[in-house]
Write a protein that binds this DNA or RNA. Structure first.
Lengths: 149, 149
DNA sequence: TACAATGATACCAAATTAGTATCATTTGTC
DNA sequence: GACAAATGATACTAATTTGGTATCATTGTA
């Protein structure tokens, strides 16, 4: 029943870090991210590869290579990430099966649940990476991607 | 990412059937339910035992025994069922871990996700068993628990 | 006492989530 | 060109959750 799994959580943290450290449009390596985020290296690597394939990151190989954020933080939403890693949210695993359910088209539960899904998607779209970042340098309010040290 | 898993789906169907067939306050047996709902018998049995323990059903043993709905269909909500089988909905599996996340109390993601959870719970409370049942005998609109034959 | 029901509980299987390991490819530097 | 430093691709493994089975105990009725 989790919407934000670890994959997604790590993805957000990595993207947030990159958003805050894209000075000189430098690339950031997996090694750097692992040092900062303390996540398991091969797992993070896999996640970054997916984000690259889906167009959120650009990657470059070889010495001096790494990843670079392609979109601006305001253009990346939680809905994007959830969709990338799990597909469109589906809250009910309908057992459609003529023996049990006479007609999927008239199922009142389906409709009600779909309305909830729709609302959730709208809310997730509104949560952008930008909205999770700190507002100002010396502001004390916590934020998702603050890295200790 | 499923809110309504099979367990819950079967539970709703069983409760709906019982709500529509409580004439003479007769009990309904697992055998009857399995015949009507075509669900796996031992699995349904387990589900009914849970609903009994949680107070939605009353059970009686021995010959002529079975289950009986305790609450009225208007007093049973999807939120009750989700809570019984999965606990309070939690959409993010926060990796709180001082290495990664400096302070759980100020996490902006947590707050935003909790707001969504709160909304979903409110909506689930509004979906009662009664709201899934057919409105009138010869109404054609589909409903969740109509049993074929 | 036999039988028909549920209670309790331990187990098993499938699916999903989390993570590892390894080899191939690309690119910069000496 | 050799080597090192990076990602690409991909197959494998481990842990957790979900879906389901099996079995024996208990209770109530004829």
């Amino acid at each position: 029943m989790r919407l934000i799994t670890r994959e997604i959580d790590y993805a957000i943290r990595a993207l947030s870090f990159m958003a805050q450290n894209n000075h000189n449009s430098n690339v950031i390596t997996v090694s750097e991210l692992v040092r900062k985020l303390k996540t398991p290296r091969p797992f993070l690597r896999k996640i970054l590869q997916i984000l690259n394939k889906k167009g959120l990151l650009h990657s470059s190989k070889g010495t001096g290579g790494g990843f670079r954020l392609v979109r601006s933080p305001g253009e990346i939403s939680l809905n994007d990430l959830v969709t990338i890693f799990h597909g469109r949210p589906k809250f009910n695993k309908c057992v459609f099966n003529k023996k049990i359910c006479p007609d999927i088209r008239t199922c009142p539960l389906k409709k009600k649940i779909e309305n909830i899904e729709q609302y959730v998607m709208t809310e997730l779209k509104a949560i952008t990476l930008a909205s999770l970042l700190p507002k100002a340098k010396n502001e004390k309010r916590g934020h998702y991607a603050r890295i200790s040290q």
